[in-house]
């Protein structure tokens, strides 16, 4: 049985001009210890489907699904109290902009200890000790001093490490990372991805990685879901996806990688659709 299982998920937003379907009948499942990448461009609904799982969508969103279970429990009509036990403890999430995700008015130490005290009912002393341990686990240099630092005193890569430490605080079994390295430099991106994979392995978590970058997919994923305009285009293990992409859209995404440029022009996704149409 998969850890998280979603069947036929649809998310609609009520807008001034009528209803807009952001996610249209998506199936997603992830097993224990697995790294799943969800790839797509902006507007493909890749973040929205995961926000629906987390219950982070605004009231204008209507979420329907045939099945939405975590570890066998149905999350659709779970009571808010039960849901709070799950979200933020068993399932945690990190976001694209690490600096914006942290509160600028409090030290990072306070913010991680807050999670430990409120969510896990730790005492101040226990929380301080565990925070230090987590900072060490995510590789923050001079962790004791950094606990007293404010987010603006740290680099983007370090803030993302803090976010990862906060997400790991409750020993989650599923970590959802929404474009965790998009705001970061390549060298820092490499460090953060290596860290996520190492922690995923150490803690035997399931990891869902949302990204638009095929390079990130190639370096991290076990299995890949390709999404376009709210629909699933293709699902495959990472090797078959790169070796023999089945869907035209996947081929288009892969050919838009600058290293796959043939001659002077980069093929774009729309070129690809024209080509497929004229076939």
């Amino acid at each position: 049985m998969p850890l998280l299982n979603i069947r036929n998920l649809t998310v609609r937003f009520a807008t001034a001009t009528g209803s807009f379907t952001a996610v249209d009948g998506i199936d997603v499942s992830v097993d224990r210890g697995e790294v799943l990448a969800i790839v797509g461009e902006s507007g493909s609904g890749k973040s929205v489907s995961m926000l629906a799982v987390m219950g982070l969508l605004p009231d204008t969103a209507t979420i329907t699904a045939d099945e939405m279970t975590y570890d066998g429990q149905d999350i659709r009509d779970m009571s808010p109290a039960l849901r709070r036990k799950l979200i933020g403890r068993e399932i945690t999430m990190i976001f694209q902009e690490p600096i914006a995700s942290l509160n600028p008015s409090f030290t990072v130490g306070f913010q991680i200890e807050e999670v430990l005290r409120l969510n896990l009912r730790m005492s101040r002393g226990q929380a301080r000790a565990r925070a230090l341990e987590l900072f060490q686990a995510v590789g923050i240099p001079a962790p004791e001093e950094k606990l007293k630092a404010y987010p603006h005193q740290m680099s983007g890569g370090q803030c993302q490490r803090v976010m990862i430490a906060i997400a790991l605080a409750s020993n989650p079994r599923l970590l959802i990372a929404d474009e965790p390295t998009t705001a970061l430099d390549v060298t820092i991106q490499k460090q953060i991805l290596d860290l996520l994979l190492k922690l995923q392995d150490d803690y035997d978590m399931a990891l869902i990685l949302i990204t638009h970058d095929m390079g990130v997919v190639a370096e991290t994923a076990d299995r890949v879901v390709v999404q376009y305009k709210g629909k699933k285009m293709e699902e495959a293990d990472v090797l078959s996806l790169f070796e023999a992409p089945k869907h035209a859209y996947t081929r288009a995404l892969l050919s838009a990688l600058p290293e796959h440029a043939e001659g002077d022009r980069l093929p774009t996704v729309s070129d690809y659709f024209e080509q497929e149409a004229s076939r």
Binding site: E41, M214, L253, A256, P267, T268, V269
Partner: peptide
């Protein structure tokens, strides 16, 4: 995004 990046390049 990657595909838009290709267009702009």
């Amino acid at each position: 995004d990657l595909s838009v990046q290709a267009q702009v390049l």
